[in-house]
Design a protein around this nucleic acid. Structure first.
Length: 567
RNA sequence: UGCCGGGUCGUCUAAGGGUAAGACCGCGGCCUUUGGAGCCGUUAAUGGUGGUUCGAAUCCUCCCCCGGCAGCCA
C-alpha cells in the first residue's frame, strides 16, 4: 500500500487502546473488524470506518476482519456482498483469510440462546408486535412485564425449539431477554433476541426461519472472533449496556465496544436509506453513478483510494456530530491526481482558430511533457496545423482588465507550440456568436526554440482541428446545491435540495492520442480539470470522460468578484 | 425534558491546570509556457454563569444549545 500523506494522529480510541495495552489486556492483542450489513453499497462514510479499523490493526500490529452482519435476510442481497468486498479491496485493505459472516455463526448463536433460556434469562413471548410496543412504555414511563415473562424454563425451551422447527408463522412469537421492563434505557426492557422470519437467506437459504437480532448477534460475533475493540457509531451507545449484559450473562469473552461519530459530508447525503431512494427513483443512474458518494460511484468518477484514505484519516475520530467539508475531500483528490494524472489537451467548448500565415496542409509534430510534476512520465508527440480549436471562453471580443487570454490585437502562447496574435474574427450572422478567429503566429517562438522564452501573459490549450477526435464529456457537479441537504422547508424532503445541474454532457474535441483511452484511466485536461474514462459506457475509439474535479480556478474567482463589485 | 452522548476558528481536529495549535476553506502576495501546481503571508474560536487556583478550554456549580434512543432494522 502507498504511504499515507498525513501523519497519523492520535485520537481517543488510540488512547483507550494504549491504556488497555498498558494494563496488559487481551494478551496485548489488537483485533478489530469492519462489520457491514450487506443491504446497500458502501459509501465514503463507511470508508472512514474501514480506514479506522484496518489502520488501527496495522499500527498496533494486530488484525482486522471483514465480517458481514447478515442477520436480516429480508434486506440483504448477494449483490451487496460482492460490491462490498470489491470496494474494501479497492480501498487498499486486506483481511487475508478472515472473511466472516454472521450467518456462519447461526448455529452457535442458537446454542447460546438456549443457554440463556436454560439460565432463566430469556423467555418466549407470544405478544404481537403492537403489544410489545405498548408494553415497552415510553421514554418517560416504565414498561410493564409481558404476561409470558414467567413462563417456566422447560416451556420456553420447548417453544423456542418449535420456533426453530418452523411450527409458527412470522410474527407470532419472539425470544426475549429477561432484564428489566422499568429500565431507563429502553434497550434493556426485555429486548427481542430472535424473531421468526420465513425468508430465504442469501447464504443459508431456507435452513433457518428464526433470525437473531443485532444486539444478540453482534456482540457474540465479536466475542467469537476474539475482537478486542469493537468500534461502532454513536447511535449504538445506548446499546452498549445490552452488549455487555449478554456477554456477561453468557460468561464468554467480552470485547470492548467503543463508539465514535459517523462521517457526514457537505453537499451530499450519507444514509443507505436515502441513497437507495435516489437509486430507486432513478434520480441517479445507479449506485455507481459518478455523483453518488458511494465508493463505487467515486471510483467511477475518478477518485483514487489514496485520496479517500488520506481524507478519512484527516477528518479525525471523535464523538462530536460533524459535517466534514467536501472541499477537504477534493483537496486530497487533487493532491493525488496532480501527482499521477498525465496531462493532455481537450477543448470542451471548441471554437475554430485559423493561423493565416501557417503553411496550408502542413502537420508538425510537437513534443509535450506528460506531467510537469513528474519527469518520469515522459513526453508525447502531438500534431499541430493551420486550423485548431481553442476554448470559446478563452477568446473575448472586448476583454475587461485582467483578462489575459486572447482578444483582437493580443498575443498568447499556445501550450507546447507557438505564440500567436489575434488579427480578426468572424461572427455568425444568425447567432452573433464568434464563428472563427484569425491569427498569425511567430515561427521563432516554438516551444523549446530560440525565441521561445519571450514572455506573454496567457497560455491556451488547443487541439489541431483536422486531427482532433470528438469525445463525450460528462461534467459532474455536486449532487445537492446546499451544504446540508437534510435541512429543508416544511413539507419537503432532502430531494428538494438536489442540484438540477449536477450533470452536463457535451462533446469535446480531444487530442488524437486519447482515442484509445481505456476504462478507468485518469487524465488532467490542461487548464480544465481531472477526468476519468468512464468504466461503464466508454468504448475504444469513442471514449467518454467523466469530470472527476475541476482545477482550482482563480480566474473564475476574479470574475465572480468583479461581478459582485459591478452590482 | 426519562436515559445516554456532545458543544474550541466558516469546517474538521489538537491542546489532558501553564503562550489556544494544525489542516481545509477564505483573503493577500510571489512564482509560473496550465489564471493548475508550488512557495510565503494572513483573517478567524474555547456556548453562558458563578466558583476553586498564582494561573482554567481543561476541575467544580447552575444554566443554555445540539444529537441519539420507544423496529420482531442494523
Amino acid at each position: 500500500m502507498n504511504e499515507e500523506q498525513t501523519t497519523p494522529k492520535s485520537h481517543f480510541i488510540k488512547e483507550i487502546i494504549d491504556a488497555d495495552l498498558a494494563v496488559g489486556k487481551n494478551e496485548s492483542r489488537i483485533h478489530t473488524r469492519f462489520p457491514p450489513e450487506p443491504n446497500g453499497y458502501l459509501h465514503i462514510g463507511h470508508a472512514k470506518s474501514i480506514v479506522l479499523n484496518f489502520n488501527l490493526a496495522r499500527e498496533y500490529n494486530g488484525l482486522c476482519n471483514l465480517r458481514f452482519d447478515d442477520t436480516n435476510p429480508i434486506k440483504e442481497e448477494e449483490e451487496y456482498i460482492e460490491s462490498i468486498i470489491e470496494d474494501v479491496r479497492w480501498l487498499g485493505f486486506d483481511w487475508e483469510d478472515r472473511l466472516y459472516y454472521a450467518s456462519d455463526y447461526f448455529e452457535k448463536l442458537y446454542e447460546l440462546a438456549e443457554q440463556l433460556v436454560l439460565a432463566g434469562k430469556a423467555f418466549v413471548c407470544d405478544l404481537s408486535g403492537d403489544e410489545i410496543r405498548a408494553y415497552r412504555g415510553t421514554l418517560t414511563e416504565p414498561g410493564k412485564d409481558s404476561p409470558y415473562r414467567d413462563r417456566p424454563v422447560d416451556e420456553n425451551i420447548a417453544l423456542f425449539r418449535r420456533m426453530r422447527a418452523g411450527e409458527f408463522p412470522d410474527g407470532t412469537r419472539v425470544l426475549r431477554a429477561k432484564i428489566d421492563m422499568a429500565h431507563p434505557n429502553l434497550n434493556m426492557r426485555d429486548p427481542v433476541i430472535y424473531r421468526i422470519l420465513h425468508a430465504s437467506h442469501p447464504r443459508t437459504g431456507d435452513e433457518w426461519c428464526i433470525y437473531p437480532m443485532y444486539d444478540w448477534a453482534h456482540g457474540l460475533e465479536d466475542s467469537i472472533e476474539k475482537i478486542t475493540h469493537s468500534l461502532c457509531t454513536l447511535e449504538f451507545e445506548d446499546h452498549r449496556p445490552l452488549y455487555d449484559w449478554f456477554l456477561i450473562e453468557l460468561g464468554v469473552y467480552r470485547p470492548r465496544q467503543i463508539e465514535f461519530a459517523r462521517l457526514n459530508l457537505s453537499y451530499t447525503v450519507l444514509s443507505k436509506r436515502r441513497l437507495l431512494q435516489l437509486v430507486q427513483e432513478k434520480l441517479v443512474s445507479g449506485w455507481d453513478d459518478p455523483r453518488m458518494p458511494t465508493i463505487s460511484g467515486m471510483r467511477r468518477r475518478g477518485y483514487t483510494p489514496i485520496a479517500i484514505r488520506n481524507f478519512s484519516e484527516r477528518v479525525g475520530v471523535a464523538k462530536k456530530n460533524n459535517i466534514a467539508d467536501m472541499a477537504l475531500l477534493e483537496y486530497y483528490l487533487r493532491e493525488d491526481l496532480n501527482k499521477i494524472a498525465p496531462r493532455v489537451m481537450a477543448v470542451l467548448n471548441p471554437v475554430k482558430l485559423v493561423i493565416d500565415n501557417y503553411i496550408e496542409d502542413q502537420t508538425e509534430m510537437l513534443t509535450a511533457d506528460n506531467n510537469p510534476e513528474d519527469e518520469s512520465a515522459g513526453t508525447r508527440e502531438i500534431p499541430f496545423s493551420r486550423e485548431i480549436y481553442i476554448e470559446r471562453e478563452d477568446f473575448r471580443t472586448e476583454p475587461h482588465k485582467k483578462f489575459f487570454r486572447l482578444y483582437p490585437g493580443k498575443e498568447v502562447r499556445l501550450k507546447h507550440a507557438y505564440i500567436i496574435k489575434c488579427e480578426s474574427f468572424v461572427t455568425d450572422d444568425e447567432t452573433g456568436e464568434v464563428a472563427e478567429i484569425h491569427c498569425t503566429y511567430d515561427p521563432e517562438s516554438r516551444s523549446g526554440g530560440a525565441a521561445a522564452d519571450r514572455k506573454v501573459k496567457g497560455t491556451l490549450h488547443w487541439v489541431s482541428a483536422p486531427h482532433a477526435i470528438p469525445a463525450e464529456v460528462r461534467l459532474y457537479d455536486r449532487l445537492f446545491q446546499v451544504s446540508n441537504p437534510n435541512s429543508v422547508p416544511e413539507g419537503k424532503d432532502f430531494k428538494y435540495n438536489l442540484n438540477p445541474n449536477s450533470l452536463e454532457t457535451l462533446t469535446a474535441q480531444v487530442e488524437p492520442g486519447l482515442a484509445d483511452a481505456t476504462s478507468g484511466e485518469r487524465y488532467q485536461f490542461l487548464r480544465r480539470g481531472y477526468f476519468c474514462v468512464d468504466s461503464r459506457d466508454s468504448r475504444p475509439g469513442r471514449p467518454i470522460f467523466n469530470r472527476t474535479a475541476p482545477l482550482r480556478d482563480s480566474w473564475a474567482r476574479i470574475e465572480r468578484q468583479q461581478q459582485k463589485r459591478s452590482r
